[in-house]
Design a protein around this nucleic acid. Structure first.
Length: 361
DNA sequence: GCCAATGATTCCCC
DNA sequence: GGGGAATCATTGGC
């Protein structure tokens, strides 16, 4: 370090301070040898000033402060600083400067593109994202997957919010830190040679550090989205057999409406609700309207294809519903006898109407 | 492991 | 858009 300083002093003693007057009128006491030739006198001046700077740390605090103040007010200070800055530029810093123009990181670009495609970064599209729709489409889902769809969107929105909050925090911290460092360097530039370029470089370094942190955030956000997507799609792709109770409810409806096994939207909703209640008691899953539609679609075709095979099942449900109907009628009669005459209880479901003929076309 | 059952998906038609 | 038909893919019993 001392060798470096000595080298700099040596170098400076031969430097021409272009554009700066170095003659007389100094804030400090006149240096020795001032009466010599003009060139020699200047060299001697600079040598003395540098000597004072170098020895400032060896003095007491008060002395040093006084000397520092004197040096700060010295009319040659700007010239000296500019030369020192020039030397710094020409030495190590210029090498670092060459590394500044980094090409855009391809990994960062990939992450940015992905976050944009998933709807995490960039403008929000209706609270969800095109990706949600794309995911639904990729899974081949029909229009009615609202439960899973909204769930996916809600989680994606959550990720989006966390991402933006964190990003904002990083940006704020980056700005605060940059301002702090810049102020510090500006303050220090009064006592040591710091060029604006150097400050710029320092800002660049800080920004790069913070963007590497941001990259980590982007990476973990991408991972979170990937996990969410895979879970969402897996949940849709995996087939789960309906519970026994759910199948019974659907079969009861099917065989009791064999003449017209096409439940209305309301009936489908009601069936889905009923099935979900029974299923949730057992497995913990819900059945959607589209699943009910699928079930009836499959059932109609399979029944039609092989009526013989399903005959036994049809009889079973016919008997079962007949018993239920008998009980309902008995209860109604009993009820009418006990109270005033009322209409027989038609039950929560549809009246059984089993027919031997197949009306599916 | 095989195979029937079954829920889901896709394509096509009306 | 809903339904039929074919097909895929998974489940569960043997």
């Amino acid at each position: 370090m001392m060798e470096e300083q000595a080298r700099m002093m040596q170098a400076l003693s031969g430097v021409t301070l272009a554009g700066h007057s170095v003659q007389g009128g100094m804030g400090l006491p006149p240096p020795h040898g001032h009466e010599g030739t003009d060139g020699d006198g200047r060299k001697q001046d600079i040598g003395d000033i540098l000597h004072q700077i170098m020895t400032i740390t060896d003095q007491s605090l008060d002395e040093a402060q006084a000397k520092k103040h004197g040096l700060n007010c010295h009319r040659m200070k700007p010239a000296l600083f500019s030369v020192l800055c020039e030397i710094k530029e020409k030495t190590g810093l210029s090498i670092r400067g060459a590394q500044e123009e980094d090409p855009p990181d391809p990994q960062l670009m990939r992450l940015d593109n992905m976050l944009l495609a998933e709807g995490v970064s960039g403008p929000e599209k209706g609270g969800g994202s095109a990706a949600a729709a794309a995911a639904a489409a990729a899974a081949g889902g029909g229009a009615d997957n609202s439960i899973e769809h909204s769930d996916y969107r809600a989680k994606l929105t959550q990720i989006r919010q966390i991402y933006h909050t964190e990003l904002e925090k990083y940006e704020q911290a980056c700005n605060e830190f940059t301002t702090h460092v810049m102020n510090l360097l500006r303050e220090q530039s009064r006592t040591r040679p710091i060029s604006p370029k150097e400050i710029e470089r320092m800002v660049g370094i800080i920004h790069r550090k913070f963007s590497s942190i941001q990259m980590q955030l982007k990476q973990s956000t991408c991972e979170a989205v990937m996990i969410l997507r895979s879970r969402f799609l897996d949940a849709r792709r995996k087939r789960r057999n309906f519970s026994k109770q759910a199948t019974e409810i659907l079969n009861e409806y099917f065989y009791s409406h064999l003449s017209n096994p096409y439940p209305s939207e309301e009936a489908k909703e009601e069936l889905a609700k009923k099935c979900s209640i029974t299923v949730s008691q057992g497995v913990g899953t819900t059945i959607t309207v589209s699943q009910v539609s699928n079930w009836f679609g499959n059932k109609r075709i399979r029944y039609k294809k092989n009526i013989g095979k399903f005959q036994e099942e049809a009889n079973l449900y016919a008997a079962k519903t007949a018993v239920t109907a008998t009980h309902a009628v008995a209860a109604a009669i009993q009820n009418s006898q006990a109270n005033s005459p009322t209409t027989p209880n038609s039950g929560g479901y549809h009246t059984p109407c089993y027919q031997s003929d197949n009306r599916i076309q």
